[in-house]
Amino acid sequence: MKTRVSFTVNGDTIDTAIDVRATLLDVLREELRLTGTKKGCDHGQCGACTVLVDGKRTLSCLKFAASLEGCAVLTVEGIGKPDALHPLQAAFIKHDAFQCGFCTSGQIMSALEVIGDPLANTREAVREKMSGNLCRCGAYPNIVSAIMEVKSNGTV
């Protein structure tokens, strides 16, 4: 069964009929071909699929796309470009905050909320706030360093 839904992704309006069973993650990846958002578990357990919905970080594998009427979705493709990186993207490279890179989009989208979080001002607090995003490569200390740098300077 399909239903019509209208929302924006990275500022572009999407107005389309979608399978009611489809998650936002699968719509982003398979229909809109925005594959920067990753599927690590499909069950809300890893954070690889994190995007912002109306400015809040959201696990896109747990969100039915049909429920997004009127929402604004932001994915990793929408925050910076290879020649104009977002400061967080640049900081992730500088601090080597990834190895395989598979969790990275989700980490960066989560970090986007954390850099604006006034309660996350110490490494300890950032570690807590970033604990919904698993990284099996173990880049955690470097992820925290990247976030702390952007928090303190606003840039890299």
């Binding site: 920067g36 990753k38 990793v76 990186l85 993207q89 992730f92 490279i93 990834f98 890179g101």
Partner: peptide, 21 residues
Amino acid sequence: HDRIDGIPKVTGGATYAADVK
């Protein structure tokens, strides 16, 4: 040296197996 595959990895441009359609 910074990773030379850093930019594709932080912008979502790196193509993993299931990203191919």
